[in-house]
Amino acid sequence: MAELQTLSDTAQVVIDPVAEADLAWIEALDAQITGRPKPDYWRRLFEGARSEPGRSFFLVARNGSGRVGFIAGEIRAWEFGSEPCGWIFAIGVDPDNRLRSVGTQLFDAVCDRFRQAGVTKVRTMIAREAQLILSFFRAHGMMAGPFVELEKDLDE
């Protein structure tokens, strides 16, 4: 069900599941932010959220004039013993609508869906140099968790 946010100091947005008609806008916003278009990725997220609506969430924020942001997450379980928890792996806000709590409303909306699905923890993974988005999640109470991300160049 759509949620109408009406706080006076925030953008008034309605948050809905992403519809097929939203995909082109999300692809364009992401390409604008990251400089790397990835339409197949966004379509897979859309299909995943549509086929597993209780586990996979892909939400868009709309205001009177159009779309202003999106967030994607899913419930993952038992990766190296991790209890079921919500994972956020994408968030984007239209640059013209930043500092108006759009990201906060999207974060709250996906966390509500995680809670409704019965999980009590939310996680994400952010590049260390992505200070803006790291600070965003920190400001929403997220702290370092008990897992460490490791990687290796496969041609080493």
Binding site: R128, Q131, S135, R138, A144
Partner: peptide
């Protein structure tokens, strides 16, 4: 350490 300290504002 840098990433942690730089991501936490005074407000946070």
């Amino acid at each position: 350490t840098r990433a942690t300290l730089s991501s936490i504002t005074v407000d946070t």
